[in-house]
Design a protein around this nucleic acid. Structure first.
Length: 261
DNA sequence: AGTACCACCTGACGGC
DNA sequence: TGCCGTCAGGTGGTAC
């Protein structure tokens, strides 16, 4: 699930549920999610504190505590947040649970555990060390153009490269390229000037549209590829067959009629 | 600088 | 029914 639009939805969810409440307890159900800090220390640092604000960069969410440090949440491929009161409403694979004074709980759920939970002193410093590019929604057209110039490699691989720009993954890169009418294997250096402009515009449009729709594919516009992202599905623009290819060992879906190389 | 492949994990699904 | 390979929206490391 989690690419930039999903993360932004998580962030807003966090803001509307879990801020400004004292954390009574933290339950760590899977130590492996905490790579850089011992569970006991993590608990100690957070108990009796409260979350005061959040911010997001690409696919990373930071929940800022009242002492200025932040809990970093990365969701891997299967992570999400769940705020609930009764334990009968608990999600299926909670890995870290924050218990609040008001009796509610915020669970970080992550079935496959490809993710991370840490305490970060300085988010900017962390992002630099991760080598993350600018957030995809913070870009300007001219900035995008200059980032693209000098790049090689396929356009899909480049869009998914988090050190190029942060936030776009396998699913949304397919959508952006579909809306742009660009074949995912096109070399970046072969893109025409107007294709680069289109690409930039579609990055903004696809991501903001998805956020508006709460990252729920059922609510996406009729001409979006994502709800038709299956082998032998029908192209929502031309009615042709959707094709699946492999790029970097991952499935890429496209319409060969709408997306010529 | 790019790419190709493996690893980290769990679970669902199709084929036999 | 059961076993097995494959695949899934992420990231990091290594070798070429």
């Amino acid at each position: 699930m989690p690419e930039l639009p999903d993360l932004e939805v998580f962030r807003r969810y966090f803001d509307s549920t879990a801020l400004h409440q004292k954390i009574r307890e933290v339950r760590i159900l899977e130590d492996r999610l905490l790579e850089d800090i011992a569970p006991s220390r993590f608990r100690k640092r957070i108990t009796e504190k409260s979350f005061e604000s959040t911010h997001r960069h690409g696919k990373y969410l930071f929940a800022v505590l009242d002492d200025g440090s932040a809990v970093l949440l990365h969701f891997g491929m299967t992570g999400f947040l769940s705020y609930y009161k009764e334990s009968t409403d608990e999600s299926r694979h909670p890995r870290v649970i924050f218990d609040f004074d008001n009796g509610y709980h915020l669970a970080y759920d992550n079935q496959r555990m490809l993710g991370e939970v840490e305490i970060i002193e300085d988010a900017g410093d962390y992002l630099r060390r991760q080598g993350l590019g600018e957030d995809a929604l913070d870009l300007t057209s001219s900035r995008f153009k200059s980032l693209v110039s000098g790049r090689r490699g396929s356009v899909k691989t480049t869009l998914m490269n988090q050190s190029f720009i942060a936030g776009i993954g396998n699913i949304y890169s397919d959508e952006i390229l579909f809306q742009s009418g660009i074949h995912p294997k096109t070399k970046v250096q072969d893109l025409e000037e107007n294709q680069i402009r289109t690409l930039f515009r579609q990055i903004q449009k696809v991501l903001t549209t998805a956020i508006d729709k709460k990252a729920d594919p059922n609510e996406f516009p009729d001409d979006f590829l994502i709800p038709h992202r299956g082998e032998d599905d029908i192209c929502p623009k031309c009615g042709g067959r959707i094709e699946k290819i492999k790029i970097n060992n991952r499935g890429a879906y496209l319409c060969p009629k709408c997306q010529k190389k």
